[in-house]
Computed example of a mutant assay.
Amino acid sequence: MTSSTILLVEDDPSLRVLTARALQENGYTVRPASTAPEMWIIFNAEPVDLILLDIMLPGTSGIELCRQVRQKSDVPIIFISAKGSETDRVIGLEIGADDYLPKPFSTRELMARVRAVLRRGGMERQSDVSRRNEASFDGWTVNFPRRELTSPTGAIIDLTGAEFDLLSSFVHNAQRVIARERLIELSRTRLGDASDRSIDVLVSRLRRKLQSAGKEAPITTVRGVGYMFNAEVSRS
């Protein structure tokens, strides 16, 4: 098997070297960058499986880079930053990150999070392919192999990787109450634990996009438990 390629964007030279070494020792191919221009050269030159992205970069910030990446790719992104507040984690999720690793972090935690994000992404994709190719609800169509959501008007709705994985989890568990903890397991997003607002923010983002067709999103909040996707789903 070929190793996963990780694009490491970190402006601190010593931390960049140490992090790259830890990843390489665990079997990953690492492409290091210290600035936004360096990141884009690598990103546009070859496929990458994961981006480790520092928030506090010189010039273009990690936040803005994440926004730009999400306009063209759903590659998993883990933020690394000295900022560790809930607000920062929520902002990261709002703009499409998949995880948030506060500094200082241990090699063990870094590797656990990298493996978890890569594993969840791979498992979701394999699960999607193994099931039927499409699902429909309320005029919407979800194409799993292409990871696309089409609105009732025929427009392709732009979803981040985490949003699509969450929608897939809802569609495959329609009309069942799903606890927040289970949603975190089913989706590949881990920004904090289940007590954080991260999964609620992700659900809110998905709701807004499903409301773009002018109808109420079929996601019901079950107070104190989690959520339920209350649409009738058909598969083809």
Rank of each mutant, 00 (worst) to 15 (best):
S3L: 10
S4C: 10
S4W: 03
L7K: 04
L8H: 09
E10T: 00
P13E: 12
P13D: 12
R16V: 09
V17K: 10
V17R: 12
A20M: 02
A22R: 05
A22D: 03
Y28W: 06
R31A: 09
R31I: 04
P32K: 01
S34D: 10
T35V: 09
A36R: 03
P37K: 11
E38H: 07
A45D: 11
I55V: 14
I55M: 10
P58G: 07
P58D: 07
S61Y: 01
V69K: 01
K72L: 11
K72R: 15
K72H: 13
S73T: 09
D74N: 14
V75R: 05
V75H: 01
P76T: 01
I77G: 04
I78W: 00
I80G: 00
V90R: 08
V90C: 10
I91M: 08
L93M: 13
G96N: 08
G96H: 07
A97C: 11
D98V: 04
D98E: 11
D99Y: 02
F105P: 06
S106R: 12
R108M: 14
E109S: 14
A112V: 11
R119H: 13
R120H: 15
M123N: 12
E124K: 15
E124G: 15
Q126L: 15
S127F: 13
S127R: 15
D128S: 15
V129K: 11
F137K: 03
G139K: 05
G139N: 06
F144A: 10
R147L: 08
T150F: 01
G154L: 05
A155S: 14
I156L: 15
L159S: 09
L159D: 06
G161N: 02
F164V: 04
D165R: 15
L167S: 06
S168F: 04
S168M: 04
F170A: 00
R176Y: 11
R176D: 12
I178H: 06
L183F: 09
E185R: 11
S187N: 07
R188G: 15
T189L: 14
D193I: 08
D193W: 06
S195T: 15
R197W: 03
S198K: 03
S198M: 03
I199R: 06
S204W: 11
R207Q: 13
K209L: 03
K209D: 01
S212Y: 01
S212I: 03
G214K: 00
K215D: 13
A217K: 04
A217I: 03
I219W: 04
T220E: 13
V222T: 10
R223F: 07
R223N: 10
E232P: 00
E232W: 00
V233K: 05
S234L: 07
R235W: 13
S236G: 13
S236N: 14
